[in-house]
Design a protein around this nucleic acid. Structure first.
Lengths: 167, 167
DNA sequence: TATTGTTATACTCTATAACTATA
DNA sequence: TATAGTTATAGAGTATAACAATA
């Protein structure tokens, strides 16, 4: 294996015949985890020629579509602490894909911008990721669109539940 | 915050109004990621009084339902490298929830067993996790069962896609 | 030779805490 | 006083590689 991509799990999170999964088999959450694991492995396969990961890809897209984005905004968009957005930005900048420019409106902040190299990388990556996703939706068949909507609804429901007892 | 639970993400992976998500909004994979993020946060909230995480809970359930499980089998069931199963087992053993006993059939292997403390912890945890999951399924409404089946189908499809070009 | 487990190491992804500069 | 970013540190969750003991 000579890919430089981040380490993927060693194997699939598939039910092993003969093992008793107890409550796990009854949980919606565990089904979601199994699906997430499988999609992550396939994302990894589809982007194996790039040194990328889902959060790195998402950050690249967000910067490309929102030129001048600040690190704090990137953190909010990705559900991260600001220190996490900083590390992600460092990584993208080291690869020459993103640059920090002074923000004219606030001397504390950086505006993030794609470089020409970053735009070229994103063009290729986006094609690979779109193909990977389209293949999955095609294999799912006519219910794929409904599934995507239901996942969005589930995300809203679970976010509301998670925040219900936070201050 | 005085929970000892592992660090949860700082915030929700929710769409931020005014930001352009580009291709991300079109991807089934990103919808799944948003749902997974929200469920993870809610799992964390539901188990905040325990020092637990989804993989630790899954490992505890697997050991409880398959007494004498070997570390290698735990790794396979969870899609991990054997070194990951070792660390998970170390963690469960340090807390006194699981013990390693000599495997009578193979002197290289350990058989993993729940302790009385582990059984008591699992009883409480399983109750909290079941309640968390049932609340989500209830909020989803009559389509919840179908959603779970569709997630299982998606996992099978994506696993097949991921393995299609592996040797 | 192949398998089980261990040790040592490394990298990603996340956090917290204490700090600086600016608002 | 609050916010944007940085630095230093930590820990979970993964991996790889080299090793010992056993099959």
């Amino acid at each position: 294996m000579n890919s430089m991509a981040p380490e993927a799990p060693d194997g699939a999170l598939l039910p092993v015949p003969g093992l008793d999964y107890g409550v796990l088999d009854e949980l919606l959450g565990y089904s979601l985890r199994r699906a997430q694991s499988a999609l992550y492995l396939d994302f990894h396969r589809a982007t194996a020629s790039f040194d990328i990961s889902p959060p790195r890809f998402a950050a690249l897209v967000l910067v490309s579509r929102n030129a001048g984005l600040r690190q704090q905004q990137l953190a909010e968009a990705m559900g991260l602490h600001r220190s996490g957005a900083l590390r992600l930005t460092d990584w993208l900048q080291e690869r020459g894909w993103v640059e920090r420019r002074a923000d004219p409106a606030d001397a504390r902040a950086w505006g993030l911008h794609l470089t020409a190299t970053g735009r070229a990388a994103l063009r290729q990556l986006e094609q690979a990721v779109r193909a990977h996703d389209a293949a999955l939706m095609h294999a799912l068949g006519p219910t794929a669109g409904a599934m995507k909507s239901e996942l969005e609804r589930l995300a809203r429901i679970a976010n509301a539940a998670a925040q219900a007892d936070q201050p």
